[in-house]
């Protein structure tokens, strides 16, 4: 296999690590030295070779371990995956999209053989082989949404489109930045975004919704979002806040570089063909600050962004209390030199 998969944990001992290759391809989200919300959408049709944008569903060295972590979360809390009854067709759409994409993009890792509705799926990294009948739920061990997203990195919000709005009617959410599918299920676009500060007054949501309602088949879109996470935790859910929230108080000047992680989400949007639903994969990438600053431009820029971020945003993103610690640490990597435009290393 072309990718060497890590054996690592996102809890307990936190053995998660990024290889040099993973650091180089990390999706650094700041194209300039400051940050404010924007819709910042672009087409999701490929990207530089080896980058996380290249494939429709990026598979990286963390794949197998992330899937083990997801299985642990689901064992504790099955409501992390839900699908309202009218969303089953969208689940099949998503299963098809992922199986076709992965088998085409990573033929050495995944195979899909189709004979009419008789499908044969092979997932080599996870050691899974499954023969099933497409559109017949009784032939899979889980519903189609749960089946395929137990084998695909990233969270998946599956949105029904009706009445000129989007509705959070299905999803697999185990690696989230502090929001809950069980709380949001059935909500519309404005309802589930209600906690986000400032963006509403800025008219961001109306523009974003208009864009998303018009994402068409064959024209997927993408954007990046980000936050900060102490320790490489995938599951930073409200359900488990009592477990991970307290870890935010454990950092010291000596440990901040190792414990504080920048958490970046690659958010993509695909129109699903049979159901006309919209799937919103949210793929989480984590990087320790001590690894991030090995790219000098990123170290300089992150220092400036975090230092100058409006208080409301630092509060919403959950790191206002740790901001002085983070800024102090990052300041040693900012010599004041100018940075170049764009997200890529110099």
């Amino acid at each position: 296999m072309t990718i060497q998969f890590n054996d690592e944990s996102f809890r307990g001992e936190y053995t998660f690590r990024n290889s040099d290759r993973a650091i180089k391809r990390f999706p650094f989200p700041f194209h300039e030295d400051s940050y404010m919300y924007s819709v910042n959408m672009e087409r999701h049709q490929g990207g530089p070779e080896g980058s996380i944008y290249e494939k429709r569903f990026d598979v990286d060295e963390h794949y197998v371990s992330e899937m083990k972590d997801r299985a642990l979360v689901l064992a504790d809390d099955p409501l992390r995956c839900q699908s309202l009854p009218h969303m089953t067709l969208a689940g099949w759409d998503l299963l098809e999209l992922i199986m076709v994409s992965k088998s085409e993009d990573y033929p050495d890792l995944f195979e899909l053989h189709r004979d009419g509705n008789n499908w044969h799926w092979i997932n080599k990294p996870m050691g899974i082989e499954q023969k099933f009948v497409f559109m017949d739920e009784t032939t899979l061990p889980y519903g189609p949404l749960e089946y395929i997203t137990r084998q695909t990195q990233g969270d998946f919000a599956v949105l029904d489109q009706r009445d000129d709005n989007l509705w959070m009617d299905a999803g697999m959410i185990t690696t989230q930045a502090d929001w809950s599918l069980d709380f949001d299920i059935g909500m519309n676009f404005f309802e589930w975004h209600a906690p986000v500060p400032k963006a509403n007054e800025m008219g961001i949501f109306i523009r974003a919704l208009k864009f998303l309602l018009n994402v068409q088949q064959g024209m997927p879109a993408r954007r990046l979002n980000w936050t900060m996470t102490v320790n490489p935790l995938l599951d930073t859910s409200p359900e488990n806040y009592h477990k991970w929230g307290i870890q935010k108080t454990t950092m010291t000047p000596e440990t901040v570089g190792q414990k504080q992680h920048l958490r970046v989400e690659l958010q993509t949007f695909f129109r699903l063909p049979r159901s006309n639903a919209l799937v919103f994969p949210i793929r989480c990438y984590l990087i320790a600050l001590q690894d991030l600053v090995t790219v000098p431009k990123w170290g300089r820029r992150l220092h400036r962004v975090i230092r100058d971020l409006p208080v409301e945003l630092a509060t919403y993103k959950g790191f206002i209390d740790n901001r002085p610690l983070i800024v102090d640490y990052l300041s040693q990597f900012d010599d004041g030199a100018p940075t170049s435009d764009g997200i890529w290393p110099d």
Binding site: H86, M87, N276
Partner: peptide, 12 residues
């Protein structure tokens, strides 16, 4: 063009 649906079924 690729298909565009402005008259979808409400699957509920």
């Amino acid at each position: 063009s690729y298909p565009v649906n402005l008259f979808p079924l409400d699957l509920r």
